[in-house]
């Protein structure tokens, strides 16, 4: 499974991209987030507040109950802030 992290999730986890093989019991996005949280302090901190984590599977937004396959590209990132300069 190809994992991508963006913005502060990337900063906290310490990498922008990695290839991992989660165990078979990781069936959904929630399962994946639970499993990743156990991989280290950075992961746990990045995924502590899931209300600010957004998920895309194969470049489409999905919910936390979305089922995963071993060959999926899964991206984790905060809510998007594009489009203009008057934010803040």
């Amino acid at each position: 499974m190809q994992l991508l992290y963006f913005a502060w999730l990337r900063a906290k986890i310490g990498t922008g991209e990695e290839r991992l093989e989660p165990p078979p019991e990781v069936a959904t996005v929630t399962d994946l987030l639970d499993w990743l949280s156990g991989r280290g302090e950075g992961y746990a901190e990045a995924l502590a507040d899931r209300s600010v984590v957004r998920v895309a599977v194969n470049q489409e937004y999905v919910g936390f109950d979305y089922p995963l396959s071993p060959e999926d590209e899964v991206a984790l990132f905060p809510p998007v802030t594009g489009g203009r300069g008057d934010v803040g």
Binding site: F6, A7, W8, A11, A56, A75, F77, P78, P79, V80, T81, G82, G83, V87, G88
Partner: peptide, 18 residues
Amino acid sequence: APFWKFEETADGGKWVDA
């Protein structure tokens, strides 16, 4: 669109909240 903004501040910077 999946864009994220990082603002430069005196103490380094911060990610802009949606």
